[in-house]
């Protein structure tokens, strides 16, 4: 079963108990905190696996990293798994360097 919602402007969809959120370019601004709230909301409503899709994300800056760390923290507190998908090589390198890959699965 697939449901789609467009609450944030970034498209997001739910596939069974895995939630997919598209990061887009929100992650470079303070408004990216909305993504964090959305992730938190889903985890709190029972989602056990959260997929963040970076297909439309070119660059993740420091604010983006901080927001992703917030998502990771919330997920680990609730025992949920976080998956990053379609991340470009440069960004994977950055995630590795800063230790995000210690907490998430990159698909």
């Amino acid at each position: 079963m697939i449901t789609t919602s467009t609450t944030l402007g970034e498209s997001s969809e739910s596939v069974s108990d895995r939630s997919v959120i598209f990061a887009d370019n929100y992650l470079n601004k303070l408004s990216g905190e909305k993504i964090e709230h959305e992730c938190r909301r889903r985890i709190e409503t029972g989602c056990r696996e959260l997929e963040l899709n970076f297909a439309n994300t070119e660059i993740v800056n420091s604010i983006g990293i901080s927001i992703l760390l917030g998502v990771i923290d919330t997920a680990s507190n609730k025992g949920a798994r976080v998956v990053f998908s379609e991340v470009n090589d440069e960004t994977v390198e950055l995630f590795e360097m800063l230790g995000l890959t210690n907490h998430v699965v990159i698909e």
Binding site: L30, N61, S62, I63, G64, I65, S66, I67, L69, I72, D73, M97, L98, G99, L100
Partner: peptide
């Protein structure tokens, strides 16, 4: 924003 920048700069949880 400052707090985000510090956390994000060094990967601080």
């Amino acid at each position: 924003t400052s707090l985000h920048l510090i956390s994000g700069a060094l990967g601080i949880m």
